[in-house]
C-alpha cells in the first residue's frame, strides 16, 4: 500500500473522509434547499421547472453531480466500514448494563440509524424525481405558450402529486427529522475530525451547526407539509391556508 491508501484506510483517515464528504454534502444541502424554495412560488411551477431543467442540463452542474455521487458513495461506504470496525472493537461480549445516555447525546451515538433512514429516503427520492427526470423520461411536459420552456419536464407537478400522498409525506418528514439530528451531530463532528477545534471558535461552530441542522431540516420538511396541508392537486394554495402563508407566498 502506498502512503496515501495507508493514510486513507487508517481509522483517522477514514474519519477524515467522512468529515470531508459530510461537510461537502452540507454545501449540497444548502444549494438544494435554496433551489427548492422556488416550489413556493405562485407560478404553477414555472420557475422551479426552469431551475430543474438548468440543473439537469448544465454541463458544470452535471460535472459537480459526479462529485455528489462520489460524496454520497464514500460517505456511505466509509460509514459501513467504520461501523463494522467499531462493532468488532467492542468485542463479542458487550455490556450487560450500559448507560451511555448519561454521558453522551443520543444523536451522536445513532448516526448510523439516522443515516440509514436518510439513505432509504434518498433512494425513494432519487427514484421518484431524479430517475424519472433523467432516465425514465415519463414525466409530463410543461407545455404552455413559451416555446423555450414548453418541453421542459414538469417536475413541479410530479412534486405536487407526490406530496399529496400521505405515506410519502410521512417518509419525507421522518427523513428530514433524521437529517436534522444527523446534522446536529455531524456538522460540528466534521470540524472536530478535521482538527478544527479552538476554544474561541468551537462553541461558535457548535451553535452554527445546531442552527444549520434546524433550518435545513425544517426547510425541506416544510415543502411536503405545505403541499399536503395547504394546496390542491394543482399546487394552488387552498383558501383555508393560514394568512401568514398567503403573505409569504405573495412575497415570492
Amino acid at each position: 500500500m502506498s502512503w496515501i491508501t495507508k493514510t486513507l484506510t487508517s481509522s483517522i483517515g477514514r474519519k477524515i473522509i467522512m468529515a470531508v464528504t459530510g461537510l461537502f454534502l452540507c454545501t449540497f444541502l444548502v444549494v438544494h434547499l435554496i433551489g427548492n424554495l422556488q416550489l413556493f412560488k405562485h407560478d404553477q411551477g414555472a420557475a422551479f421547472n426552469t431551475y430543474s431543467h438548468f440543473m439537469g442540463t448544465n454541463p458544470i452542474i452535471r460535472t459537480i453531480e459526479w462529485g455528489l455521487v462520489l460524496g454520497f458513495g464514500f460517505h456511505i461506504f466509509e460509514a459501513l466500514v467504520l461501523t463494522r470496525r467499531n462493532k468488532t472493537a467492542r468485542g463479542a461480549q458487550g455490556y450487560v448494563s450500559n448507560h451511555s445516555e448519561q454521558n453522551s447525546e443520543w444523536t451522536s451515538r445513532n448516526m448510523g440509524i439516522l443515516g440509514s433512514i436518510i439513505l432509504i429516503f434518498l433512494l425513494v427520492h432519487l427514484y421518484n424525481f431524479f430517475w424519472r427526470a433523467r432516465f425514465a423520461g415519463d414525466l409530463p411536459k410543461m407545455g404552455g405558450a413559451d416555446p423555450l420552456t414548453s418541453d421542459y419536464d414538469n417536475l413541479y407537478m410530479a412534486v405536487v402529486s407526490s406530496f399529496h400522498i400521505w405515506w410519502y409525506v410521512l417518509l419525507y418528514v421522518a427523513a428530514q427529522i433524521s437529517l436534522g439530528y444527523h446534522l446536529w451531530h455531524g456538522f460540528r463532528s466534521g470540524f472536530q475530525t478535521l482538527g478544527l477545534n479552538h476554544r474561541k471558535y468551537t462553541p461558535l461552530i457548535k451553535y452554527v451547526g445546531y442552527v444549520f441542522a434546524v433550518v435545513v431540516s425544517a426547510g425541506f420538511a416544510s415543502m411536503p407539509l405545505y403541499f399536503f396541508l395547504f394546496t390542491n392537486a394543482q399546487g394552488e394554495m387552498a383558501a383555508n391556508a393560514p394568512a401568514i402563508l398567503q403573505t409569504v407566498a405573495s412575497a415570492f
Binding site: 474519519k15 467499531n86 447525546e105 472536530q192
Partner: peptide, 21 residues
Amino acid sequence: VAQMDKEGFGACTNIGSCAAE
C-alpha cells in the same frame, strides 16, 4: 496511530462519552 489501529480499537465518531467519563 498505526499501533492504535493495529490493536483493534475502534475509530472515534466524536460522541464525547470518553471525555465525559
